[in-house]
Structures are given as structure tokens and as C-alpha cells.
Simulated assay, not measured.
Amino acid sequence: MANLIRRTESGSMEPSRFFDPFELMRDVMRWEPFRELGMLGRHELAFVPSFEVKETKDAYVFKADLPGVREPDLEISLTGARLMVTGKREEEKKEEGERYYAYERSYGSFTRSFTLPEGVDAEHAEAELKNGVLTVSIPKRPEVKPKKIELKAELKAGEKAKA
């Protein structure tokens, strides 16, 4: 099991009682220098939710993982062919004297926008936030749904076409 190493406010590490070269190598391999560069002057990471977008035969469905986002902090709008999802996840209150050994969760405001193809039925769009997952379903108008075209059978010599 990994040892916890307490970091001071300046970012330096307190020396460990035991030197484990394998643990050191694991820490080096997980190091993300660009993430730390982006955090200069900040103590939190930006919250950017991941989306899944799919097309079914009847609708376009957008799903996003939004753990910790409350319904009042979420706004979904559809203007023309542009779907906008805006929200925020509030940082939890830090108590005096608490010490963090890892601080990897992200907080803050986010905005995601998607351009939809022609033929969406904006009047019947639906959204639901359940168990931290946002689902937005935007149906297609009936005239743009795929239609099956029947093949006409080839007539053999001497047969009459059915009317």
C-alpha cells in the first residue's frame, strides 16, 4: 500500500521515514507536468463534465456525468440548432484545521454547446437529472426520420402489373 506524503503549502514534501525506489518511480510515472502548470496561482482544477452523444432512429440523446451538480445550478437551452448546457459545481466548505492528502476533485462553472443537424423537434425536447447523470433527448421531426422504401418486383414476360 502506498505511503501518504504530506505536502506543505509551498508544495514541498516532508521526508518519508522509508525510501522506497519503486514507490518513487510510480510517483514519477504518474506525474503530469502540464496539469501542474495550469494550476499556477490556483488551487482547484476546472470542472469539465464528460458528455456522450448518440443518434437513435427517433432522437439525439446527450448524457453527461454531473456528480454534485444540483438541479438549480443547471441551465439547458436550445436555440435553433444550438444546444447549450451550463452549470456549476460548488466547492465544499473547508474547515479550519483540516488537512488534505489528496485534492483531485474539480469545481467551478462550465458551459458545453453542441450544434445539431437540421430536422430536430425542439418543442418536444426533454431533460432529466437523475443520480448525477443528465440526459437530454431531442426528438427528430417525423419528416426527417428514415423511411423504408419497398422494392418493386421485376415483372416476368406475360405477367400484368397489380394496380
Results as ranks from 00 to 15, higher is better:
94 K>P: 15
116 L>A: 03
117 P>T: 14
131 N>W: 02
71 E>Y: 03
74 L>P: 05
137 S>L: 06
99 R>D: 08
75 E>S: 14
93 K>A: 11
138 I>H: 07
78 L>H: 10
16 S>H: 01
53 V>S: 07
30 R>L: 03
100 Y>L: 14
85 V>A: 00
17 R>S: 10
66 L>K: 11
134 L>E: 02
121 D>T: 01
43 H>L: 10
69 V>N: 14
148 K>E: 15
15 P>R: 04
67 P>L: 07
67 P>D: 12
119 G>T: 11
122 A>D: 03
24 L>C: 08
17 R>E: 13
73 D>L: 02
49 P>T: 07
128 E>F: 11
131 N>R: 08
69 V>E: 13
36 E>N: 03
139 P>F: 08
78 L>V: 11
106 S>G: 15
101 Y>R: 01
55 E>F: 08
43 H>Q: 08
42 R>C: 05
22 F>Q: 13
95 E>S: 03
27 D>E: 10
76 I>V: 12
93 K>R: 11
143 E>V: 14
42 R>E: 10
140 K>V: 10
37 L>M: 12
18 F>M: 10
13 M>A: 14
93 K>D: 07
35 R>T: 12
119 G>Q: 09
74 L>G: 04
105 R>V: 14
82 R>H: 14
16 S>I: 02
90 E>K: 05
67 P>E: 10
92 E>N: 09
26 R>A: 01
50 S>K: 11
139 P>H: 08
64 A>L: 04
103 Y>T: 07
55 E>H: 06
120 V>K: 00
95 E>F: 02
40 L>S: 11
130 K>T: 09
51 F>P: 09
125 A>T: 00
123 E>F: 12
45 L>W: 06
104 E>Y: 11
26 R>H: 00
94 K>D: 15
113 S>F: 00
95 E>M: 03
119 G>D: 07
70 R>H: 06
56 T>F: 15
35 R>V: 14
104 E>Q: 14
48 V>S: 01
103 Y>S: 12
56 T>I: 10
137 S>Q: 12
146 P>L: 11
126 E>R: 06
49 P>Y: 08
80 G>T: 04
13 M>C: 08
57 K>H: 14
152 K>A: 09
76 I>C: 01
28 V>N: 05
77 S>C: 00
71 E>I: 09
155 L>C: 04
97 G>D: 01
60 Y>L: 06
137 S>M: 09
49 P>C: 11
151 L>V: 01
84 M>V: 11
105 R>F: 11
